[in-house]
Amino acid sequence: MDESRTILEESANKLFAGFAEPALLRRVEAGEAAPEVWAAIEAMGFELIFSGASDDPWRDAAVILKACGRHVLPAPLPETLMTAALMQCAGLELEGVPKPVTLGAPAHTELALAEGGSVTGRTSHLAWGHVCTHAALPMLGQLVLAPLDGRSQGDRSIGREPRDSHVFVSVTPVASGPLNEQLFTAAGALMRAAQMAGAIEAVLEMTVQYARERHQFGKPIGSFQAIQHQLAILAGHSAAATRAADAAFERIAQSGGDADVMLFEAAVAKIRCGEAATAAASIAHQTFGAIGFTDEHKLHYFTRRLWSWRSEFGSAGWWSQKLGRSVAAAGNDAFWPMVTAAG
């Protein structure tokens, strides 16, 4: 990894680690605002990666998104970054729009064109909607950036992150441009995949540490082969998830944001990271035992998010069907060339 990206990774991890405290996470999960988190992000300029602050925004975004997952950052930085990425794909700029912003999923959005170019309709499952100024939403082959007026209705995911509903009545978008609506799902899937990869790395580290410290039968539980082999399996999933997420962003960067590449990479990353998330949460909880199942312990801040993120913007099963259909349609002679062309 090049040096500037290593520095970016270190500074993001350092900043986000300070917010990964159960006391703060509990407050935000209960619905309290934590403006200091967003202020600290803006002070570093992390939200501007797709707005001119980086000359390699996709690869830098991967680093930031994994760090967000690794520290279960309680703020919509991933959503802001991927909204900016989608805006770029639609030939639009996010400059001048106050942040944070978020993006909606086509499966949960129904918008129609109303009088004078305004839009009417609704969206739900909108991540962090009530703390965001605008949402990028799909409408008739367009990306529309619609202002949110703060009256979002709050649901929460099992990660206890806000997933809001919002009704639009003759709202004038601040920007719009042509964009394949499947790319909303792809961008969301890429975002959640990278967050999962980061969170799984954190889960691996905390579980290994616990296995070395916790004594039963007179020795550390990590000295038992039964535990060692479970953690080896977890390490394999973590390695695969991280490579899948990193490679997705690398290849999108190489392709200059090509739509077909984004769809393929989103599928591979969401499928692989989703499966890894399931295994990681299961092995971590089994290793931690009862203490890891308590509200007091920090493990659940990671595992509840893994369970939530693996379902959002298309589950592994949803993406598997989509990818499988395209593989089958191309036929068996095209299969291996497709695998090698993916790099």
């Binding site: 490679a247 259909r325 593989v327 790099g343």
Partner: peptide, 30 residues
């Protein structure tokens, strides 16, 4: 398997194929 399921597979077949593809692509990258 790809030859056998044809160009318009059912949901189960498509899901299995997609999952195997994602694993294969990732393992090759590792």
């Amino acid at each position: 398997l790809i030859g056998r399921v044809g160009t318009n597979p059912g949901a189960r077949e498509a899901a299995a194929l997609g999952r195997l593809t994602a694993h294969l692509v990732t393992l090759r990258r590792m």
